[in-house]
Simulated scan of single mutants.
Amino acid sequence: MIDFWPLIGIVIITVGLALKQNTLLVILVAGVATGLVADIAVMEILSILGQSFTQNRYMSLFILILPMIGILERYGLRQRAEALIGSMKKASVSKILMTYLLLRKVTNGMGLSIGGHPSMIRPLIAPMSEAAAEKSSPNLSDEKRQSIRALAAASENFGNFFSQLLFIGTGGILLIKGVMADNQLDVKLETMALWALPTAIASFVVFSLFAKFIESRLNRQSADAVTETSTTETAQEEGK
Rank of each mutant, 00 (worst) to 15 (best):
I2Y: 09
D3L: 06
L7T: 11
I8N: 00
I10G: 05
I10Q: 01
I12F: 03
I12S: 01
G16K: 04
A18G: 03
L19F: 07
Q21D: 10
Q21T: 10
N22P: 08
N22A: 13
L24H: 09
I27N: 05
I27L: 11
V29S: 15
A30D: 00
G35F: 04
V37D: 04
D39G: 08
V42N: 15
L46M: 13
L46H: 11
Q51L: 12
Q51Y: 03
Q51N: 02
M59C: 01
S60W: 09
L61H: 06
I65Y: 01
L66Y: 08
L66F: 12
P67R: 04
I71W: 09
R74K: 08
Y75E: 07
L77Y: 11
Q79A: 10
R80H: 06
G86A: 05
K90R: 12
A91R: 07
K95V: 09
I96L: 09
M98D: 15
L102M: 13
V106L: 03
I114R: 07
G115Y: 13
G115D: 08
P118I: 15
S119W: 00
L124I: 13
A126E: 09
E130Y: 02
E130F: 06
E130D: 03
A131M: 01
E134N: 15
P138S: 10
P138M: 15
N139S: 02
L140E: 05
K144T: 06
K144F: 11
Q146W: 08
I148C: 04
I148S: 10
R149I: 05
A150T: 04
L151M: 04
A152L: 12
A152G: 12
A154D: 15
S155F: 10
N157M: 08
G159W: 02
G159E: 04
F161D: 06
G169V: 03
T170H: 02
T170F: 01
L174H: 05
L175M: 07
I176F: 02
G178W: 07
V179W: 09
D182R: 12
K188P: 00
A193D: 01
L194Q: 07
W195M: 05
A196Y: 12
F204A: 03
V205R: 00
V206M: 07
S208Q: 07
L209Q: 09
F210M: 06
K212A: 08
S216A: 14
N219I: 10
A223S: 12
A223C: 14
A225T: 10
A225H: 13
T227L: 11
T229N: 04
T231R: 01
E233V: 05
T234G: 06
A235H: 11
E238W: 06
